[in-house]
Design a binder for these strands. Structure first.
Lengths: 182, 182
DNA sequence: TGTGTACTCTTTAGCATCGAACTTTAGGTT
DNA sequence: AACCTAAAGTTCGATGCTAAAGAGTACACA
């Protein structure tokens, strides 16, 4: 029988207490925020993964579908543009597109104007999958934020974008794998 | 020449505008929060990755060191406990421990009381690496939150733990890869 | 026209991961 | 005591990623 990893972690409070025990000069408030951000993100990814699995695709597929849809009609991009957008190597994109072509989510053809280039285009089926995934995602997201008042949402959005701006200024070239979803 | 993925994404605002263009019934405020969370987390992971690389270890190593340190003295755990804690399979732990043993970060020995079991124990060198990584991490984290007032920090920590509690109740067994750090 | 150079994508080799099969040991049941 | 079952860890095969090398095409410039 295969092992299904089942993540068995202490509560956030226990964990921060343990950090304080093992490391001096630790600001518990900072640690609480940072660790909550990490955990929240992981749980979100788990939720998205379950939803896409239900649709018969992977999170990796969904990332590509999102990039294509967000590029706007006619939903075409080159493999290396996709690779840059998703933060992975062109080599990885080649294989990912292979798979998605066989799944019928995208088509791949050479650009007749510049035969070095390849055009990856979303199929109607791929667009449909994206919409279904979006419907499920928005349900989850709405549920997640359900307990927040309008004022809290505004404040949270503002603070998070402020933090994001700060870290983006600090690392203008991200160079990170897009394991998370956006 | 190898490709260094360089993540080339639209601004958060552009992206949300594109979502609205392509998908009806979208709450921009919700989307802003969720997408900011994802992006923030990715940037944090990039920062942690650079720091651990500077110390000559990987983020994977750091995850294991953290789990061992947080377990408390004498900093011992079994491979499958570690695997559960980190959300990966025992098979992956076997190889990861192999590597870390050769790096001198941990030791592996059989439990004499129950010879099926294996004990992974942190070495002094491993503990030292953990402390250096923590020092760097706390500098980054402090800098990240620098612009937030004490009131904002309190409010942010409270809201995030509320969201976390909600999503943890919804998925009691996480079953997710611990790609993020905590 | 010919050549060099840059760019785009694919191929190859190596590594980490997962799922599943397997080995060894512990502990309960008859 | 002999067996059965469960648990811990490793091994094996497949997949997806990276880094690096390779092949094909376009464009600038002599």
């Amino acid at each position: 029988m295969g092992d299904t990893p089942g993540l068995d972690e202490p509560t956030l409070e226990e964990q921060i207490a343990a950090y304080q025990r093992e490391f001096q000069d630790l600001d518990p408030q900072v640690e609480k925020i940072v660790n909550a951000l990490s955990r929240l993100n992981r749980r979100m990814n788990v939720a998205y993964g379950r939803q896409t699995a239900e649709l018969g695709i992977t999170n990796a597929d969904w990332e590509v579908l999102k990039a294509l849809v967000l590029s706007g009609a006619p939903y075409r991009m080159g493999p290396s543009d996709l690779a840059k957008r998703l933060g992975l190597t062109p080599a990885a994109m080649t294989h990912r597109i292979d798979r998605m072509v066989t799944e019928g989510l995208v088509t791949r053809e050479r650009d007749e104007n510049n035969r070095v280039r390849v055009i990856v285009e979303l199929t109607p089926a791929g667009r449909e999958k994206w919409q279904e995934a979006m419907r499920m995602a928005t349900v989850f997201e709405t549920d997640l934020l359900q307990d927040l008042s309008p004022e809290e949402r505004t404040a949270l959005g503002e603070v998070l974008t402020r933090l994001l701006r700060r870290v983006e200024d600090a690392q203008p070239d991200a160079g990170g794998r897009l394991t998370d979803l956006d």
